[in-house]
């Protein structure tokens, strides 16, 4: 089992390495370089020379990749052109803000998805299932930029209950941020919850139809005991990886939602730095998002390994 974890870990690292290469090469083969694209029409003379020197663009590409990668490993992403400061300083508060947003969505979304998924499965084709499933399919199909806009229109503009867009400085404290995140969290959690609830539903239904559940019923196990002891552990196991994928996919949703709500997080930074042609920041963000993706999947694998007795013994036996 240890070997398997180690293998997964190394695979994750290799993935990250490949992502870093791709982002680096991608930036490299764009016409011009970071300085010309950033400075645009002022890209000549002293300003250009200073920029090139500052970013070290005068050395060959492979050397630049190595030193960049080496710095990234040590946690230094370089210099932001548009912010005129170290990228780390730009990233810090943004990561924190996005983290608050994403974790709020996860903390609300996952338990809600589990509960809804289980309810819909146990009351399959009855009223609770029909209502919840219809709502879920609706919220799955509406893209978040539309649901976000609708939320702003209804809650912020018509009802005037909550702020419509987030107008706060990047480095706000957590409590100042809280009322502002309610709408973005709803917008993100809606799709995610709907997706996961559907997954949980089908997984529970599948387990409910299995021979061992029929056996448990015939053994005289009371209904709820059967649900908690025999059904859920087996139904939720395959759901772990789906949850991980959904969370990883949530990253994309976060980008869009942040832009709609003008939320000062990583997502908005991605859009900002692309439109500012701030290539060093784009590069840094690529690596960060990829590592989040990789680590979420790694954690999901660990959890599955730990919780599935089948996998656990398979590995230790050999």
């Amino acid at each position: 089992m240890f070997f398997l974890i180690f293998k997964r870990f190394v695979l994750g690292l290799i993935t990250l390495f490949i992502v870093s290469l791709i982002t680096f090469i991608g930036v490299e083969i764009l016409p011009g370089d970071a300085c010309t694209s950033y400075l645009e029409r002022e890209a000549f003379g002293e300003a250009l020379a200073a920029c090139i020197k500052r970013l070290g663009l005068d050395v060959p590409a492979h050397e630049r990749y190595l030193s960049w990668a080496f710095n990234v490993i040590q946690g230094d992403f370089g210099y932001s052109l548009s912010g005129q400061m170290q990228i780390n300083e730009v990233l810090g508060p943004r990561i924190k803000n996005s983290l608050v947003l994403a974790s709020a969505a996860i903390i609300i979304g996952i338990p809600l998805a589990l509960i809804l998924g289980i309810i819909t499965a146990l009351w399959r084709d009855k009223m609770p299932d029909i209502i919840i499933s219809t709502v879920a399919i609706f919220s799955m199909t509406i893209p978040e930029f539309i649901s976000a806009t609708l939320l702003i229109l209804i809650v912020a503009i018509w009802l005037e209950w909550l702020p419509g867009i987030v107008i706060v400085p990047t480095d706000v404290t957590f409590f100042e941020l809280l009322p502002n995140i309610i709408l973005p969290v709803i917008a993100i959690a809606m799709i995610m919850t709907a997706h996961m609830a559907r997954m949980v539903r089908s997984s529970v239904i599948q387990v409910m139809a299995s021979d061992y559940i029929q056996m448990a019923i015939l053994k005289g196990v009371p209904y709820w005991k059967m649900v908690f002891k025999h059904v859920l552990p087996n139904a939720l196991l395959p759901a772990i990886n789906v949850v991980a994928l959904t969370i990883a996919w949530l990253l994309g949703g976060v980008v869009v939602t942040e832009v709609v709500f003008n939320y000062p997080g990583l997502g908005r930074l991605v859009i900002e730095s692309i439109s500012n042609r701030d290539l060093p920041v784009v590069q840094a963000l690529g690596i960060i998002l990829a590592s989040i993706y990789v680590s979420i999947n790694f954690i999901a694998d660990l959890l599955t390994l730990m919780l599935n007795p089948r996998l656990k013994t398979l590995q230790t036996r050999k």
Binding site: D211, Y212, Q214, A216, K229, P233, N234, L237, P309, R310
Partner: peptide, 11 residues
């Protein structure tokens, strides 16, 4: 049951 392998709860 017929197929005990599937009739025993795996976890």
């Amino acid at each position: 049951p017929q197929n005990a392998g599937q009739a025993l709860t795996p976890n």
